[in-house]
Design a protein around this nucleic acid. Structure first.
Lengths: 349, 349
DNA sequence: CTGAAAGCGCTTACAG
DNA sequence: CTGAAAGCGCTTACAG
């Protein structure tokens, strides 16, 4: 209801021109201490807030906010990366008239990540969205970005790095606890729970490690009598799952309760079950890829946890834009919900 | 990458002034057929899209988009209505510089709803957000709104009305199916499932009816042998739940499996269980009110389904604004996800 | 039926 | 150190 205070009214109240007000607002210097103080007083008293629409009209048409997205090659990783990309594109479309320009860079190897990082920094992008798959290279990126105060947002995984960066991802430990809750709800306590991790040359992915840890924590907390046993199988992608050491013994053990797959490949389980002729073993996994969804529809998987990759990409771009144009980092503090998906809410998530 | 086409370039290409272009763009009339056609051709060929930022700067400061929110008195309905209100306020804050003005109107009785509706229509609001609690009165509102083509968005419940309106709410039947999935997962098929509905002078709330129907459908579909039995208790709010006819018999029956509460009062169950000295009965309910959350934390409720009321309010206002300013109704087609909440993802939803 | 001009609030290049 | 002016793209009131 209060009168809209603009830069013009500030200028009048402080008895200066709007140019001088702007100099103070943007710390452009060249203003005497006394005038500056007078203007700052008026700004404080009136509670002036810049009109972002006018600001973006003026600025956005001249020089766009340029954001670089350094993402895994779209085809890899089960097309998972199309989702964040879609979210980023959607955000950019919404902000088109505000003056935004998204550029994509792709990598698969660490060396490409490093090389593209350099290009991005050289080209003077104002913000970067990427993924912390390679720790050393992510640190190198952050080190370079720090020089020009370029904000970097990491999606998907939270890892510990040497310089400050933003993370928009799901709390993996919590997601593991949720998985524990869901499985335990289905089968009760006691018996043997199987955790399936993918392992590669670099060892366990941080998300998988955290998820397993959360899962174990849930069972330990809820199982006062220590009658539940959690067994982990770390399997490399290039080996057939059904012949992994321990698999046969576990599946045929009468005490086996359910399986928690810490990655996106829960759909690999049902064929293994069929191979050993076992039925009725609940599976909880991650991600809404087509293979998993098909299993969910056929009721071969009980629950999937969604990391909302599109949502992650969308908020990364919107959050960065807000930060860059309004110095407001609130849009970069988003907790990705641990969204539980069953067959019946599949089309509504 | 393509050159930004503005009204100025359209004018130049069509060899007219920008005023004439604007007349065509807004169907303001007073343009010869031949000029109009020439301009339309250029617009089509260039793929011109109006710059919404410039448009809002010009328009928003002169006349704001005025939206009326006709909502239940905030204190009633377990403070549930604070959430959509919060979402609407958040949307309005984000759109402040674009020129939006939200006005709240409150009702509790149908008569007040009707009276406020008239006021809203008289005052010439451009869009309305409300709730279809009273069918006849909602129809009256829609009838009045239709005259001036004022769009009306209903939250919370989808009902059948006599005139077209928008609905932003959860698919209640699906939510019931999800509840069926969750309960059946916990206790398996067979035995007696209890459905608890609140009933008042107007009978069953549409959402509750749909949720029960979805729940029953799930059990019927999955229970080929018809060994599961669903029993409904419709209870009026002014009577003690534990003495409702059938309650004692059901709870003490060995075959009883779990309880589905179709409204926000799942928290009333645990005391009833204690009253009869029964334990370990799973409960699935709706809404994240403090009482329910406390039960979830104490593991007296297994699952809560969130209708995301804040999200509903937020999207109603954003969707209406987009529709009113860009003739784009896409923001009014939102399916509210059936969000499943357990103790472990509570703080992240 | 059409055009020229003013202005939304902010930003900056230029003149002094 | 400060002000006056131009302009972002769109919209409208006014003049012809």
């Amino acid at each position: 209801m209060k009168e809209p205070i603009g830069i013009k009214q500030i200028a009048k109240l402080a008895e200066v021109s709007i140019g001088t007000v702007d100099r103070v607002l943007h710390n452009r210097g060249g203003v005497s201490k006394i005038t500056e103080q007078k203007i700052l007083d008026v700004i404080r008293k009136t509670g002036y807030r810049k009109n972002t629409v006018a600001s973006r009209l003026r600025l956005g048409t001249h020089k766009k906010v340029r954001i670089a997205c350094l993402v895994p090659e779209a085809a890899s990783h089960w097309k998972y990366w199309q989702f964040p990309k879609r979210g980023m594109d959607r955000a950019a479309a919404e902000l088109h008239d505000h003056g935004i320009e998204l550029s994509y860079f792709y990598f698969s190897e660490p060396s490409a990540f490093l090389e593209r990082s350099k290009v991005i920094l050289d080209k003077g992008f104002e913000g970067i969205v990427t993924v912390p798959f390679f720790t050393a290279e992510s640190n190198a990126l952050l080190r370079g970005a720090q020089v020009n105060q370029v904000p970097v947002v990491f999606l998907d995984t939270e890892v510990s790095l040497d310089f400050p960066g933003w993370f928009i991802c799901q709390h993996a430990h919590r997601a593991g606890e949720v998985a524990g809750r869901l499985l335990q709800g289905l089968v009760g306590l006691g018996g043997i729970y199987l955790v399936l991790n993918i392992i590669n040359a670099k060892g366990l992915h941080e998300n998988n490690r955290q998820r397993e840890s959360g899962f174990r924590k849930f069972l330990n907390t809820h199982d006062k009598k220590e009658i539940a046993e959690v067994v982990t199988i770390n399997y490399p992608l290039d080996q057939p799952l059904e012949t992994m050491p321990g698999m046969e013994r576990l599946l045929l053990d009468k005490r086996r309760k359910g399986v928690f797959v810490t990655n996106s490949r829960a759909y690999m389980l049902p064929p293994v079950f069929r191979h050993y002729g076992v039925t009725g073993i609940p599976v909880v996994g991650f991600d809404l890829n087509e293979e998993n969804l098909e299993c969910l529809r056929r009721e071969e998987i009980s629950f999937l946890i969604n990391q909302k990759p599109e949502y992650q990409g969308y908020h990364a771009v919107r959050g960065l834009f807000k930060f860059l144009t309004e110095k407001d980092a609130s849009g970069l503090h988003v907790d990705i919900p641990v969204e539980i998906v069953v067959r019946e809410n599949l089309h509504l998530v």
